[in-house]
Design a binder for these strands. Structure first.
Lengths: 155, 155
DNA sequence: CGGTAATAGTCAGTGCCCTGATTAATTATG
DNA sequence: CATAATTAATCAGGGCACTGACTATTACCG
């Protein structure tokens, strides 16, 4: 007997498809050079210039390895500068270049347009409900990190 | 002036964080060996044994390159077999091994448990609304593929 | 039948995402 | 003050996701 599951009722599977759909829409409506995570980093540094790498990662939800890769690409493209913190030799302080500021400003308009298209299938009320629900699920799941004991129920 | 945006209102950013949160929860509650996309492939082949690679990709929402990688890993682990279609020499027909069936069956229970934990912050009504909304957004965005003209509004 | 178009799959290249191990610098402790 | 613990960043390694270019096979059409 085929005992398959209906994946369209699995939030994780839907989350993956949602993210992929967003990736494609971003590519066609916002930028082919600057990705959504890269924009998030630029945005975080516009809000708080001079943050260190790890803190930027926390702001945008990227771990230490991933944020290092994203930042190195932004630096390679000249959108970002990094200098040692004179107060703490472990840290690098990050700051946008003029080019980085310009890129960020240009993309803000396009992301707004893309968000509209992305959420267009939902009514205005549904859109705010959607944002609220997805945020609550994501926030709560992020709080579930490393509880000491593995979450796998032993059989 | 800092003209930063509030990313917690951007569905794409939330989608990425949601997907990451799910990834981590899957790892701790379902399996460290078999990933969520791999499970989706196993599940599709339990429902329809003997599908070809491209069709499996369509069923689970993966493009031709990604599905090829996922399948090669499943074959390497002995969960899947692939044979040339005698009717059409371009296709490979895919079928689960006994090990693949066992793995799929074992994970079904765990994914159900994980889904409960994942959606726990929402009430029962909110859960169904959430599933409905995310599915509508993902479906609609997937339908936006390659419309001939680029979607970027020219300035 | 023979040439062109379409289709299934592979490969190279880029980028995101995580873990575990390592290095360098700082902070805490005895 | 010297050692130990913590912290910021890097590196190696595995997996997901896409595009564009390529190969092999099949289908279509004149």
């Amino acid at each position: 007997m085929a005992a398959a599951v209906d994946l369209t009722t699995h939030p994780g599977h839907l989350a993956r498809r949602l993210q992929q759909a967003h990736y494609l829409l971003w590519n066609s409506m916002v930028s082919e050079e600057t990705t959504s995570p890269q924009f998030a980093v630029l945005n975080a540094l516009v809000a708080e210039p001079g943050l260190d790498q790890r803190t930027v990662g926390m702001r945008v939800g990227l771990d230490r390895s991933t944020i290092a890769e994203v930042i190195s690409r932004l630096i390679r493209r000249g959108l970002l500068d990094k200098v040692r913190d004179p107060q703490d030799g472990r840290r690098y302080l990050l700051r946008l270049t003029d080019d980085g500021v310009r890129t960020h400003r240009k993309l803000i308009v396009r992301t707004a347009r893309m968000n509209q298209v992305f959420l267009a299938p939902l009514s205005a009320e549904e859109q705010s409900v959607f944002i609220d629900l997805i945020r609550r699920v994501a926030d709560s799941a992020e709080g579930l990190r490393n509880p000491g004991e593995p979450l796998v129920a032993q059989s």
